[in-house]
Amino acid sequence: MSMNGEYLRVTPAELDRALKDPAWALDLAEEIQDAQEESEPAPSEALHFTTHKTWHLLEFLLQRSAFPVGIVHGEEPLTTDDWGYGPPRYVAPDRVQLAADILQQTTYDQLIQDVDPSELTKAEIYPQIWDSPASMEWARDLFTPLTEFFRGAASTGHAVLIWLD
């Protein structure tokens, strides 16, 4: 079993409902995940996105760069209910916009610049595969789609629910 970073775009009205009824939000997340498995929309159009197991590496790299928005675990609690590996959190629409703006200006090369893989091993970054500089390339293919996902959410004024599953 693995830990995957999960993201769900929601309208402000859906966020309000999710805050009042977290079980409804979980049902919505599962319904959208199932629907998207067949359609596979572009990240900028997707309502659901996953960073798979790269979430911890991305968190490390973003924290190291002093990224101002919590886009790996979210910023505000949605509920105390466990959605897999802990409760979900969310990023409000204005913070989604800020994240999208900064992500648009950030490259993966900037994030990994001067990072020694031994730092990742020492920090116990999940999963523990940090045996060479090439291992840091692992998350490159998900960073651009994550940027596109946030850009799409920001363009429609959506909030983003975030959890580990």
Rank of each mutant, 00 (worst) to 15 (best):
Y7P: 02
R9H: 08
V10I: 12
T11W: 12
P12Q: 07
P12W: 08
A13Q: 15
E14F: 08
L15T: 01
R17I: 05
L19A: 06
P22W: 01
A23M: 03
W24D: 01
L26H: 00
D27A: 15
L28N: 04
E37Q: 11
E37M: 11
S39N: 07
S39P: 02
A42E: 14
P43N: 04
S44P: 03
S44Q: 14
E45A: 14
F49G: 05
T50K: 10
T50H: 09
T51N: 11
K53D: 15
T54M: 13
H56C: 11
H56A: 14
F60I: 06
V69L: 04
I71N: 02
I71G: 03
G74S: 10
G74H: 12
E76V: 14
D81H: 01
D81S: 07
G84L: 11
Y90E: 07
V91G: 08
V96Q: 08
L98C: 07
A100V: 05
A100R: 01
D101L: 10
D101I: 01
I102M: 12
L103T: 00
Q104R: 14
T106L: 14
L111H: 05
V115T: 07
L120P: 06
L120G: 00
K122G: 10
A123V: 03
A123C: 05
A123Y: 03
E124K: 03
Y126L: 11
Y126D: 15
P127H: 00
P127L: 00
Q128Y: 06
S132A: 15
S132I: 10
S135P: 03
A139C: 12
A139T: 01
R140M: 08
R140L: 09
L142H: 09
T144H: 12
F150D: 05
G152N: 04
A153M: 07
A154K: 03
S155E: 14
T156R: 14
I162G: 00
I162D: 02
D165H: 07
